[in-house]
Design a protein around this nucleic acid. Structure first.
Lengths: 182, 182
DNA sequence: GATAATATGTAGCGAGTGCTACAAAGACTG
DNA sequence: CAGTCTTTGTAGCACTCGCTACATATTATC
């Protein structure tokens, strides 16, 4: 088991990197294997079949995201929800985050379609992000749990509109009036 | 041209029906052809290649959606934005709408990934829906354009959280306090 | 009715898919 | 050293993919 799981854990980061750049649904064994410096034969050997590979990969990516969020924690807290929203939105739109965002929408779509493993990964990532968002709210926020969910709803809606080419007027003009308090 | 486009127009509804039930990205020519009562050979003949077929299909589906929205228009207007939000959310979560919603997230994901044709379709559908949403706002709404965008952001965020298994606490608790005025 | 344009069926190509059978090399254990 | 177990390479299978060559109907035009 030690050797096997060690190999799997060695493979997963490289596979995840490839998936972040080329997508998850369209990925096939041979390109994945080449990206990880091995063969399709060995991927099946280590993961059993492709469905399991995808499931493990999703779990691994959720883990990456989780640790990234943990690393992003800390620093001075914002003073208002609006400030919190803007800060996170800016981070979400950062070019560095784009491969992850693209993959995120693919995961959402797979979750909606019922592709095995996708919903679990999406749920895990969303739960983690909600917990993280709670810690990012202003110190004096009257309802951190509810506020995090409200902000997340607004955030994801805004990001989605951006993906679709409606980042401009989307929520910009409106948030000034509605994002103040709870 | 007449015969050709007539055949194309005959095919498109059946193709769209199949795509709504089985997805767009994973659809391949032979199953599509069988669903439309023809052959892969003829699909290529009528559309040139698969990319063009997908583009035409997306445009056709956007058209379907547009007319569906037009048909849904009318009726008494809601009295508050909150009422408007609830009504549309309920409609969006209706089982009858689910195939369309599933496809919608696939289109969003394709748009994010840059798949040819997806972004245009997503943009068209979103633009149409925003225009429709403006007409659905309360008569006395102080800022219909902005309000539609705000509601759309909230709506799409809520629907996305639902797809991912977070429909419960998502925005429910919060909307009471924040959705009142402009 | 000859000719041409349009429409459709049959068969298949080359590439890619997930996955497996077989064999062999290496490592570990008695 | 013999025997066993883990890891890996090679080759290939049965299948699907988008697409095309070729032949043949069907229809329109002169």
């Amino acid at each position: 088991m030690t050797k096997t799981s060690l190999s799997r854990d060695t493979l997963l980061p490289k596979l995840a990197a490839h998936v972040l750049n080329h997508g998850l649904g369209g990925a096939s064994l041979r390109p994945l294997a080449k990206a990880a410096g091995t063969s399709d034969r060995m991927l099946i050997y280590h993961f059993g079949n492709k469905e399991q590979l995808v499931a493990d990969l999703l779990e691994h990516i959720a883990g990456i995201y989780s640790t990234a969020l943990d690393a992003a924690m800390g620093g001075e807290k914002p003073n208002t929800r609006r400030e919190c929203f803007d800060r996170i939105l800016k981070q979400g739109r950062h070019p560095m985050m784009q491969p992850f965002m693209v993959l995120w929408w693919e995961i959402v779509a797979g979750s909606a379609r019922g592709v095995p493993g996708y919903r679990e990964a999406a749920d895990a990532m969303m739960t983690k992000q909600l917990a993280w968002l709670e810690t990012q709210l202003p110190e004096d926020d009257p309802d951190p749990a509810g506020g995090a969910r409200y902000l997340m709803t607004l955030l994801e809606g805004t990001l989605m509109l951006g993906v679709v080419g409606h980042e401009t007027t989307a929520s910009e003009g409106l948030l000034a009036s509605d994002l103040s308090g709870s």
